[in-house]
Design a protein around this nucleic acid. Structure first.
Length: 416
RNA sequence: GUGGGUGUAGCUCAGUAGGCAGAGCACCUGGUUGUGGCCCAGGAUGUCGCGCGUUCAAGCCGCGUCACUCACCCCA
């Protein structure tokens, strides 16, 4: 029979990677809770329209990267490509939005039909925070601090925080016009093929191009920072001021662009130079018109998402805890007794393995050694007959024979 | 969607100029009547991704195909 393989861009996580993911998720939950975030679990499948309306009909994500299909009654459904839309939909639908600021944490798998590469899978996992109901610059600063605190507690270093303001519906069109004017003054034929297209469709993206010739050409392009309206300018200044006071190191990057249409004002990204080309480990920003756009009240919001696979690339080796014991069985008539003894220990919270077959003691000792257990228990014919068991300390090699009833004590049972 | 690289033992990979399929690690057995690590001796393990072609002969050359991977695009 032929093997069935997993589908492209989907991965199976075994230990220690699965442990790293669990650990990161738990730490995120814990850190974000200190800021008042409450966890929300939302569906993986949503109506396609939700993403089309929030992310933006014209974005690449919606145009060509979504897992979209018709259900059995012909309704168009989509596997979520990001978390924000679903969380906001749930927030709006729950109707619990009259209580001032709401801070939500969500996590889980997201899906995008892209060509896989380092740090990018078709099913990937994000940690997501949304702070809804306030446009205070303090909230922006708090969200950034929350993210940075989490990454620091994860032990990640050499990360760089990039910060920008994209302006609001009032000042952004002004900047777009200035940018278009600028682009029309330069020799279009010098731009790369992608940029010639982007100059029309999404001029902001031209600023972000990595091709050296394009970089040089847009050197003198106008900066969004200089085009902000007084309101946005003041808001951004306050956010920076707080982050300065908190001594949080960031880099202003007026070329920082977000891929989703709903972002405005404060946007930020955390990048690493150590994980290949997909260098953004987290990204987010403010989306003040979005809740209303999704049929909810006119409330502002800000949030971010962390890519867990990318964090995992930066995370060191996970230490897998060694089991407490290995129970070697030398006589096949002792196998049942051994299993019951192990069960007794496991009920007390000890972790360990018990042999399912009476192999040579040498083989079983080797196994105990390989598992790295602190204690090896040996049950043979002699011990069986006397109701005893051998307890061997693997580090010192010292062993003693004790009554089976005294096992918990010998292993250092501590009350839970 | 586009381009490059790689598919050989459980894992990491050698394999010269087409001529018997290899190493290290891991695993198993023994060196100890019931005692691990180190050491020594021995052992098992292959659709050389798959298909077609060239050839007396293909892991190696050609074509196709699938998978993985990195990069572009895009993004967390």
């Amino acid at each position: 029979m032929s093997k069935i393989q997993k589908i492209k861009g989907f991965s199976d996580l075994f230990c220690p990677e699965s442990t790293i993911h669990t650990l990161m998720e738990n730490l995120a939950r814990q850190v974000f809770a200190t800021y008042g975030c409450q966890e929300v679990r939302v569906p993986i499948l949503e109506k396609t329209e939700l993403f089309a309306r929030s992310i933006g009909e014209e974005t690449d994500v919606v145009q060509k990267e979504m897992y979209t299909f018709a259900d059995r009654k012909g309704r168009s459904l989509t596997m979520r490509p990001e978390a924000t839309a679903g969380v906001l939909r749930a927030f709006i639908e729950s109707g619990q939005h009259s209580e001032g600021t709401t801070k939500l944490f969500a996590c889980g798998p997201m899906f995008r039909y892209e060509r896989p590469q380092k740090g990018r899978l078709r099913q990937f996992h994000q940690l997501d925070v949304e702070v809804l109901g306030t446009d205070a610059p303090q909230a922006d600063a708090e969200v950034v601090l929350m993210l940075w605190t989490f990454l620091t507690k994860l032990g990640l270093k050499n990360l760089s925080l990039e910060l920008n303001s994209l302006g609001c519906p009032e000042c952004r069109p002004v900047f777009h016009q200035r940018l278009r004017d600028f682009l029309s003054t330069i020799d279009q034929s010098q731009l790369c093929e992608d940029c010639r297209r982007r100059a029309e469709t999404n001029p902001l993206r031209v600023l972000d191009c990595k091709v050296p010739t394009c970089k040089a050409l847009v050197e003198g392009a106008p900066s969004i920072t200089g085009a902000l309206c007084p309101g946005c300018d003041e808001h951004f200044a306050q956010v920076r001021d707080i982050l300065d006071s908190a001594a949080l190191p960031y880099r202003l990057n007026d070329r920082l662009v977000r891929g989703l249409d709903y972002y405005q004002r404060t946007t930020f990204e955390v990048v690493s130079g150590e994980i290949g080309s997909q260098s953004a480990v987290a990204g987010g920003g403010r989306y003040d018109g979005l809740i209303r756009q999704l049929g909810g009240p006119d409330l502002p919001g800000i949030g971010f998402a962390c890519g867990m696979e990318r964090l995992a690339l930066l995370y060191g080796e996970a230490q897998m805890p060694a089991p407490d014991f290995y129970l070697a069985v030398l006589d096949s008539r002792a196998l049942n007794t051994a299993l019951l003894l192990a069960q007794r220990l496991r009920e007390r919270g000890f972790a360990g393995e018990v042999s399912f077959e009476a192999r040579s003691i040498k083989a079983q000792m080797r196994q105990a050694n390989k598992l790295g257990v602190k204690t090896c228990l040996i049950l043979g014919q002699d011990e069986m007959e006397k109701g005893q068991i051998v307890v061997k300390d693997m580090a010192t090699g010292v062993q003693k024979t004790i009554g089976q009833d005294d096992l918990e004590q010998a292993l250092g049972f501590r009350k839970p």
